[in-house]
Design a protein around this nucleic acid. Structure first.
Lengths: 344, 344
DNA sequence: AACGGTCTTGCATAGCTATGCAAGACAACA
DNA sequence: TGTTGTCTTGCATAGCTATGCAAGACCGTT
């Protein structure tokens, strides 16, 4: 009779190491927990045995015991926008420095969100960080129901457990308006982001308000609708051309649309920037610095926003009742470049 | 005397639900495991109780029992490159569709990698997917030692447990050379990526080989060194200008450098594309389609590459001994745009 | 009524580590 | 030597769910 070889490759456990080192399982655990009470001699024996067996500590049981996984669910969409991509990079780095892992969830639309959340929660994540711009009440309720801290970027979601870190969208819109008026431009265009996007709405509001506050007659901008993509910015200008409107200034809700608009103004309307049209975007993406665009933009200071988000998380982890909401608003920094620099 | 309220918020367990529903804990488990043997009546009772308590299934114990976490460690760097950002998006989506979670780890340099891997492994991830371009032997050994399947994109890492999915870098380089020669250009420039980058090296090799195979005299390109960033592409052209070289064609190891080079050619050398210089890039990033660049590029078909990576993972999960290596090479698709379209 | 079969349910357990507690080892001191 | 204190070690257990097994419920057939 042939002894069937066990195909199951059981992972090396602390007990295996303990046996080899001739110590108890506790000793192995302590050898890998900094600050534990263990003699140098034992520690060395354990580490040697662990090395020879290829043992790696296993955090899963600790999660069960402590109820904390040290994993944060990051829900994100629209990575094709360089702004979100670099923001994710910063966030991931910051979380790791705080000893937190990133359980990433990419979401295209609100529909898949519910399902996605259930999956995340089943892994017992400690919190959720999200940049979803959808402001629906249903989403807020779905998040609140999880009973874990949620931090949103640039969102208008409101509810228990939900905190937000927003760029000063309204203020930036106001600044954009003032800058355009200072330069003496009187036919501005507002190029909006997705209709339900909270950030875009706030920027629009600030912009309009800025255009109202004038000693002479208030200015009403031409409004164009986009969806945060380059193509939508380009298309918006085409529609403008069809309507026979000749703008002298433009504020776009994000840089990608601004780039699309700038290209369309050049190619389709033979208008030059900044000579004929001065332009401002939002997000300060790397492409804004590219020579072909040299775009004035608002920097959201993602570094600061991420730091603030982590503070909120830490606070929530320490509080007994962490369902309390907080809101932080971070000033956006105007970065002036060639697109608003008038020739002398 | 005041009864001290318990601050510890224990999560709702299946036992709590069972008690409320008047069934056993097993029944609760089965109610949430599709395909289990359970009557409709019991299931409804359980679901109702679970709903009222806010119970969410907990995967952590299942991980301990099965040894499989259904989490894949994704190790990535350079998200500021839109190519990696969109690739990550595709990968995350595909993994989720296969029921796998993404444990994201952002890594800047090889130094932090070791530490990062230990952290990942302690969460008992089932596999690793990485796009790190570093080809060092040390890295390969560190990965092999983990004894879990590893899938690399565009890498030259070799070792047990490590499989690779590569774009046909060599073939694409060759194609680029042929295209340049067909257009009658004789002073080509090769703009390389980071020195140790395996993909960049392969593209260079194919490009040189293509330039050699000619009926007349072989062509030797001018070689410029970049680091995959826009700025390095711009700077490379500046150095060219200093050396007094006037190119008539350029192949860059990625699109970002190509964009930088194109802007520098325009601004610094007053050379127009494609009239004076025809240009090709690699990755087919969204910016390649932007009107200011309209850049011919090689599409890596990330969709296909991701699908292939998932096949490799599935295969590894099913095999008893999954330490066997595989290599797949995916054709890159030439996307011709204005930057190589000569005026009639 | 007896029997065989299918469907449903509960019991009991495995999976692995961190940690409180008690006990042991050892040194220092009286 | 006895006592006190510090340092180290091992024992035992908690944490929560999925699942094999056995038993029970129920139905249909002979």
């Amino acid at each position: 009779m042939v002894t069937q070889e066990q195909a199951v490759i059981r992972a090396v456990t602390s007990i295996d190491v303990a046996r080899l080192a001739g110590v108890s399982q506790s000793a192995v655990s302590r050898a890998f927990s900094p600050g534990s009470s263990i003699s140098d001699q034992t520690k060395q024996k354990v580490l040697a045995a662990a090395e020879s067996l290829g043992y790696r500590p296993n955090r899963i049981p600790a999660i069960m015991l402590s109820g904390r996984s040290c994993m944060v669910g990051v829900v994100i969409g629209g990575l094709e926008n360089p702004f979100y991509a670099t923001a994710l990079e910063r966030l991931a780095t910051a979380l790791r420095e705080s000893g937190l892992q990133v359980l990433l969830m990419h979401v295209d639309d609100a529909l898949t969100l519910d399902n996605a959340l259930d999956q995340l929660v089943s892994y017992r994540i400690d919190a959720i960080v999200t940049s979803l711009a959808i402001g629906s009440k249903t989403v807020a309720q779905a998040l609140s129901r999880l009973r874990i801290p949620v931090v949103c970027f640039n969102s208008s979601l409101v509810g228990p457990w939900i905190s937000t870190v927003n760029s000063d969208n309204h203020g930036a819109g106001f600044t954009a308006a003032r800058l355009i008026m200072e330069k003496g431009r009187v036919r501005p265009v507002w190029l909006a982001g997705p209709e339900r996007n909270a950030a875009s709405l706030a920027r629009a509001e600030g912009f309009l308000q800025g255009l109202q506050q004038t000693r002479t007659s208030p200015i009403e901008p031409t409004r164009l609708q986009g969806d945060d993509t380059y193509d939508s910015g380009y298309a918006a200008i085409l529609s403008l051309k069809k309507r026979g409107i000749r703008p002298d200034s433009l504020f776009a809700s994000n840089d990608m649309m601004a780039c699309g608009a700038m290209d369309a103004l050049r190619e389709e309307m033979e208008l030059r920037c900044p000579d004929d049209v001065i332009m401002l975007g939002y997000d300060n993406i790397p492409q804004a610095t590219w020579r072909s665009y040299d775009l004035t933009s608002f920097d959201q200071c993602t570094g600061k926003m991420v730091a603030r988000a982590l503070e909120l998380l830490e606070k929530a982890f320490q509080a007994k009742d962490s369902s309390h909401s907080h809101t932080h608003i971070i000033d956006a920094k105007l970065i002036e470049r060639g697109s608003t620099r008038l020739p002398l």
